[in-house]
Design a protein around this nucleic acid. Sequence first.
DNA 1: CTGAAAGCGCTAACAG
DNA 2: CTGTTAGCGCTTTCAG
Lengths: 329, 329
Amino acid sequence: MPSNPTIYDVSRLSGVSTATVSRAFSNPEHVKEHTRRKVYEAAEALHYSPNAIARAMARQRTDKIAYLICKKDATVLDEFYAGICEGIMQSANHSEFQLLVSTAEDWLHNVSTAQAKQIEGVILGGDAKAELVSELQSRGVAVVLVNNRMSGFDLTCVVSDERGGVRQAVEHLIFRGHRHIAMIAGQFSPYISRERYTAFRDIMKEYGLPADDIRLCELNVESATQAAMALLQQEQRPTAVFATNDMIAAGTIKAARRLGLQIPEDLAVVGFDDSSICPMLEPELTSVHINCRRMGELCVEHLKALLDGKSDFPRVVTLPTELRIRRSV
Amino acid sequence: MPSNPTIYDVSRLSGVSTATVSRAFSNPEHVKEHTRRKVYEAAEALHYSPNAIARAMARQRTDKIAYLICKKDATVLDEFYAGICEGIMQSANHSEFQLLVSTAEDWLHNVSTAQAKQIEGVILGGDAKAELVSELQSRGVAVVLVNNRMSGFDLTCVVSDERGGVRQAVEHLIFRGHRHIAMIAGQFSPYISRERYTAFRDIMKEYGLPADDIRLCELNVESATQAAMALLQQEQRPTAVFATNDMIAAGTIKAARRLGLQIPEDLAVVGFDDSSICPMLEPELTSVHINCRRMGELCVEHLKALLDGKSDFPRVVTLPTELRIRRSV
DNA sequence: CTGAAAGCGCTAACAG
DNA sequence: CTGTTAGCGCTTTCAG
């Protein structure tokens, strides 16, 4: 099979130097209209297209970024991180970045040394380890954290307004007259767990309400259902439950149903994340919407800014959340 | 900032030629133990690691593959395709492939010419267009289809056993004594829609049962619920519903509940895909499990085989499904 | 088993 | 605005 045409072939056919061909593709404005046309025609005729590898080699720049998900659960690319990934994908493609996707674990295992230097920037999703960040930064790789924050580093973090989201959820319940609001909290990444947990306590306190009816559960429906069963069988049953994600809310709804409680009449439930399951539940679940896609896009934008040396950026980019009100409250 | 160490630095420090350093890294077995150690030590001392770009340039091989999702829905990376993606990711990393992820649309828009040749293989997920395939193949890119089949091309397709899955679902219902089984079908990619649809009709026919109670719906819960409402309010109400995915099943459950029907007593429901929502629904949804992850892994394996010139492979790789029985039947 | 040397395809000064 | 030329860092014959 004939190897692909190179810049030399185009140069020859069009009668200009390789430098001009190169310019015609990467800096069209620096080439006279007429010349440019000749070049493009020749390229067309030869089915030529620039070789990104060679280009990267010459420019010492790869335009390659990576999205590393730092997470150990069975399913890494859950709805949340997949949403972020979509945003990143789209943004990356529109900025002519190439996007590599991997889990942090695999990355460290197989590719760290071999690839680190060919990646110009990394978006770290979830529970990134400080040592990963420092290694990356020490190698001159630009780093953006998403859905996480880390102190002690000079880096950009993109997060949703967790506390604001909790506030929207809890205040909605309070304004509806609920006084005894319980929380069922799942163990997500440290950052997220902490934010949602402490936000709940703070906000309840702010309204002078007790925040002592709190249960923890594992990240599966059964565990959430169990926790909710225990919660709802107390003598002093809460009138509302704030679940720290939608799956837990689903478990709560199941428990309520088993105990013969009507939702929202006997128990109001609000979830978090506004995942695709919300409208599938009966009744539909009120939940705090997070714009994952937008988060992903922002990551790329900020990474780009970092790579372009414009780091006069807000260190922490916070995205507002939005309460999606449905029938469960 | 000091530029990264190169093979020359290692060569100098270790006192061997660059060729030997190169071999020590890519063909260790062709270098004498002693020499190799010297090289590794020097490399270590310098924090050297080979530059993949340069390597790719010299070898004319990039070890880069891409996963392109051909799908237009709002959310591209849904649970199904994300699952496949995870499998691909893992497999790719273990084979020291670099994985690019994109939507087919973005790909065509921005990067086709610029990148096509640096990608050695492509996994096309979903509803790939024939022209994309032929363009890719004409450029010498190895192509594997996942969750789709296409005739007229010489390519490997990885699919789950859709017909087998439908059979598991429907036979389960039949064996439980159901005779009037309706289907609510969503409009997925042509391939999937067709398979599930025709499989249902064929299997019902095989058992001498009428397969004429069929409804179509859009891909959202509301539409599914509507369709189910209409279905269940007929004079001759079916005793079981086969939904072509879990979301539709969720809509069916909602409709049943609204009509005061008990599940599974008054109506049995079975879904498809066994997505994460199944255990969240009340009652938990029986569904046909598809091993998405494994599908992704298989894609990479076959792509690899193609790239290594071992194309004596089954053209179509079919993965068995498994009925996950829960309380909805 | 090891070394010398010729590229891989493109870009970026530097001249003109 | 365009051409010349020296690399970018590594692999790979081909000799030794």
